[in-house]
């Protein structure tokens, strides 16, 4: 029996292409007003980071895909993508660990 390991999985949820994204439109307008006239399109999605126990990478990803289908995304107007599956760092180091672009822990405090 494989021992359950802890995984960090990141899922992205996007409005489907062709579905009007009012939030993206508003952000695009604001960016253009700031002078970024080259901005053609902006889409705002959601990023869901999970830590879960599963007996392997494929199992972890499979579980998160099922979660996306059942709850995290609405298939009528949203698509999802599993963007990362990696062994979770120690819980004591939770948070930005393992995410290269993450904010530095305990950095700017006010």
């Amino acid at each position: 029996m494989p021992v359950a390991e802890e995984w960090r999985v990141v899922a992205e949820v996007w409005l489907r292409r062709g579905v009007l994204d009012p939030q993206g439109q508003a952000v695009r307008g604001a960016l253009r007003a700031l002078g970024y006239e080259g901005v053609r399109d902006v889409r705002v999605g959601k990023l869901v980071e999970l830590r879960l126990c599963a007996p392997g990478r494929d199992a972890a990803e499979g579980q998160v895909r099922a979660m996306c289908s059942r709850l995290l995304a609405n298939p009528v107007l949203e698509d999802f993508r599993v963007a990362a599956v990696e062994p979770a760092e120690d819980a004591s180091d939770a948070g930005s660990a393992g995410s290269p672009a993450g904010p530095s822990a305990g950095g700017e405090a006010g």
Binding site: L15, V19, L20, P22, Q23, A26, N74, V76, L77
Partner: peptide, 17 residues
């Protein structure tokens, strides 16, 4: 009802946000 699949379709944020 939409989320439950008892009615077809879905809701987006109002176009004027």
């Amino acid at each position: 009802l939409l989320e439950a699949g008892l009615l077809p379709g879905a809701m987006l944020a109002n176009s004027g946000l």
